[in-house]
C-alpha cells in the first residue's frame, strides 16, 4: 500500500474514533462504517482501529470474522445478497439464483472480474411475504423473477 493511502486510512479511522468514541462498544459501529464505505475492513485498518481503541488486533479480527456482513478481504463495489431461506426458496429463489449466476458469470461467494458485484447468499431478510428477496448494499428488492433480478443487477454501477 502507498504511504499516502495509509495516511488517509489512518485519518479516516481517527475521525471515526473521534465520532464514536474509544470505548469497546464503539467497535462495531466503527467497523460498520468502514465496511459501508470500503466494502471490507483491511488488515491495516483493523490494526489502526486496535491501536486507537487500545485493544489487541486479534480482538478486532475476531469480531470481524464473526459477523456475516463484515469482510476482511476485498469485495466488489456492490454486495448483492439473495435470501436462501425457505419462504424465498418456495417462492422461486432457485431460478433467480441460477439466472443471476449465468448473467454475471460467477457463482455465489465470488466477485465479478471487474469488481462490480460480489454475490452472496443471506439468511431470511424479513421479507418472506414478498419473496424471493435480495439486498443490494442496503436496498431491498422483493418479488424477484429471474428477469427482474438481472435488470436490477445490470443497472448498478
Amino acid at each position: 500500500m502507498l504511504v499516502l493511502e495509509k495516511n488517509s486510512l489512518t485519518e479516516e479511522v481517527e475521525s471515526l474514533v473521534e465520532f464514536y468514541g474509544t470505548e469497546r462498544s464503539a467497535l462495531l459501529p466503527i467497523l460498520q462504517a468502514v465496511q459501508r464505505k470500503h466494502k471490507y475492513v483491511s488488515d491495516f485498518v483493523q490494526q489502526e482501529i486496535a491501536r486507537l481503541l487500545d485493544i489487541h488486533p486479534v480482538e478486532v479480527y475476531s469480531v470481524v470474522s464473526f459477523y456475516a456482513f463484515l469482510h476482511s478481504e476485498p469485495q466488489g463495489r456492490n454486495i448483492v445478497r439473495l435470501c436462501q431461506t425457505i419462504a424465498c426458496d418456495l417462492a422461486g429463489k432457485e431460478a433467480v439464483a441460477r439466472a443471476v449466476e449465468r448473467e454475471l458469470g460467477i457463482t455465489f461467494g465470488q466477485t465479478t472480474k471487474d469488481k462490480r458485484i460480489t454475490l452472496e447468499y443471506a439468511n431470511c431478510l424479513g421479507m418472506c411475504d414478498q419473496g424471493p428477496a435480495m439486498i443490494v448494499n442496503d436496498r431491498v428488492y422483493t418479488h424477484l423473477t429471474p428477469e427482474k433480478a438481472i435488470n436490477i443487477l445490470n443497472e448498478i454501477k
Partner: peptide, 11 residues
C-alpha cells in the same frame, strides 16, 4: 433483530 425465518412483523 428479527432474524427468525418467516418473521417480519417487527419490520
Amino acid at each position: 433483530d428479527e432474524g427468525e425465518p418467516g418473521t417480519f412483523k417487527d419490520r
